[in-house]
Design a binder for these strands. Structure first.
Lengths: 376, 376
DNA sequence: CCCTGTTAGGCGAACGTTCGCCTAACAGGT
DNA sequence: ACCTGTTAGGCGAACGTTCGCCTAACAGGG
């Protein structure tokens, strides 16, 4: 099962077998070559990557440290990253950072011991403010983040959160809403602050108050509760921007409980564009964020940094856009369409239900900014 | 940065340093011990797991081959598995099997080359019928699945799908429904057949027809479309059992479009109990499946098999239970509760919204059956 | 003084590769 | 006959560990 066995069977030295199997063409006679491959096949030889790694000093493996994957957003990042890694021949070690313990540090240690070629930080919830982990990420092995890393020095890939907040707010303002509120994510999070800045700037420019807000915890239950508090504080709100779709679902649920019709009494805008958003009641207007692509891009950047020396730690921003659905614009005619179902009409129906593409309001964001610009 | 450096600094041989750092207590003088640890600390020594693996012939790493992680269900499996693995000192290599290509085989090859200690198969959608992958899983390295593996020989951890179908059907029958329909997952899938068996047996025992069914694709859009077809075929259905919560959301959405009130005109039962289920409109009655625990259990079984020899390939079934919410039992009084919101009332509200625990109808399933029994 | 036991640590070998240099063997030109 | 070049493949070393056996050194008992 080792190179030696293959070599013995083919009647060559194991080093020669190594060369041949690694595709160093032309260094041996065609006939020997055949013999070696035949031997490998017959023996079911599987190269030992750990031995190889020991001498080449590279494992072709990257570590991903992520928050709870049952969060759809995180899962998207990871799937995109994993796909890109594998496309380029790398394996992915994954670890989830459970509930802000010192857990993440232990996991990083594990990655270092296993000599991963690079590390992708995808744990905004638990790592965004972790100085010690940040220190490790700045260490000798290349790292890339999809969230802020305290102290910098690590390239970051993300979306334009300011723009996200702006798109949501602009949409609501343009629809004529004057009493707009927002259900934010946890206040300590960077994204929340950024989105809030974008959101506020629009409201203030329109001369509207921007202080109606309640904090949620990214869950539907949190969105539900926040909405109840919101309505209690000011029953007259006519529009709510939730910082993610899950909370938006809670917002819809709470509005329904309170007998408010959506969008007639109160419009709702979410954020993320998770698949279910198009099938909530009513279908949710939301800001589409490119999570999958962010993961891909981050991994691509990471793999690029491996081996390269001293590439500057730049920052990449991916574009976001608004997807308008009925939670903000449900004209009465759109509310109760006659079913156009036929027995083969599935795709017809589902596209009728989620009108992506046709009604998108797109907005570009610059895709690769220097950190100078991005810091602004 | 290697043992040799540490040893040199401490003035001992590197083998001695190895012994000490690996905690072979008592084999050296206390004072030397201290010196070695001090040297390691000062040098920032990080053991090289790949060299260690080479000699110990075990990597303390397991491979997980999964379907698309953006599916909440799969993500739960993986998170449970990962957590258990790490708790026991193992790292997890993850690979997603993209859309039924030969992808999975390539990934398994990668795992074998990297000499993982075990493999966890968590890709029902793409691997359930893959004979070649099954062959690899039966190979020399221990494997465990959370889904059927063609040809057997691999321990499987799962839930009782027959019971799942039965619980949903019994609930609807007990509520007095006579025209019950179901939106299934893809017909080729094992789970679908099992759930259908349980579901059918209940309906037939009650003397009801069990042939109202449409196939979905696990997505909300699929559930939406299937419901439209269902209503077209027989507008008189009063209850629908969907094979997962995502499709159930589509069912709710379609019913809403068709002007059917839930549960008054048509009751809906889902399956999975994803977090959002409690916050759909109306909150969804669903069968709770223990995905996280399944992942944990599967990993635990796998780690147990590593090293152990010839442990029989048994089958583990985890219990499921029904969670009743308003999509089947929404009495009018429950439909529009006065908001009991106070400014600190968040938890009060959210528990009011999702009444887990109190109204659960629990049903036990045997937790560890011999394969003889489980096959029945 | 010798034998034995214990303590503290050294040392060689092996794990399965990759890499670069070395060397037979042979052919062709002078 | 000799030098030179090319082709085909061998060979030693190194990667950083673990593991088991070996051996100084010393102490104590007879």
């Amino acid at each position: 099962m080792s190179l030696k066995d293959v070599a013995a069977r083919a009647g060559v030295s194991f080093q020669t077998a190594s060369k041949v199997l690694n595709g160093r063409r032309g260094v041996v006679a065609e006939e020997t070559r055949e013999r070696i491959f035949a031997a490998a096949r017959e023996l079911g030889y599987v190269p030992n990557a750990v031995a190889r790694s020991l001498v080449t000093r590279s494992t072709y493996t990257v570590g991903v440290v992520a928050d709870d994957l049952s969060d759809w957003v995180l899962a998207q990042f990871v799937v995109g990253a994993e796909r890109e890694a594998r496309r380029r021949g790398h394996a992915v070690l994954i670890g989830t950072a459970h509930h802000g313990g010192p857990d993440a540090e232990g996991y990083l240690q594990l990655l270092l011991e296993r000599r991963v070629d690079g590390i992708l930080a995808a744990a905004p919830n638990s790592l965004e403010d972790d100085e010690r982990v940040a220190e490790l990420l700045r260490g000798p092995i290349p790292a890339v983040g999809i969230h802020h890393v305290p102290g910098g020095g690590v390239p970051v890939v993300g979306s334009d959160h300011r723009l996200t907040g702006r798109l949501a707010a602009e949409h609501l303002v343009e629809l004529g809403h004057r009493r707009i509120a927002t259900v934010t994510g946890p206040g300590a999070r960077r994204v929340v602050a950024s989105r809030l800045r974008g959101y506020r700037s629009v409201l203030e420019d329109a001369g509207l108050p921007a202080d109606r807000m309640e904090e949620g915890d990214w869950t539907a239950a949190g969105g539900y509760a926040a909405t109840c508090r919101l309505l209690e504080g000011d029953p007259s709100v006519t529009a709510i921007f939730a910082h993610n779709d899950l909370m938006a679902a809670g917002v819809l649920s709470a509005l329904h409980r309170h007998g408010r019709r959506v969008p007639d009494d109160c419009a709702v805008v979410g954020c993320d564009d998770m698949p279910l958003a198009a099938h909530l009641i009513p279908p949710l207007t939301t800001v589409h964020l490119p999570f999958y692509e962010t993961g891909e891009r981050a991994m691509s950047l990471l793999l690029g940094r491996i081996g390269e020396t001293g590439e500057p730690a730049r920052r990449v921003l991916l574009p976001v856009h608004l997807v308008v659905r009925e939670s903000t614009e449900g004209g009465e005619e759109a509310q109760w369409p006659e079913s156009r179902s036929t027995s083969t009409g599935r795709s017809e129906l589902s596209t009728a239900a989620s009108s992506e593409g046709s009604s998108n309001t797109s907005a570009a964001a610059s895709t690769e900014e220097s950190s100078t610009r991005a810091r602004s």
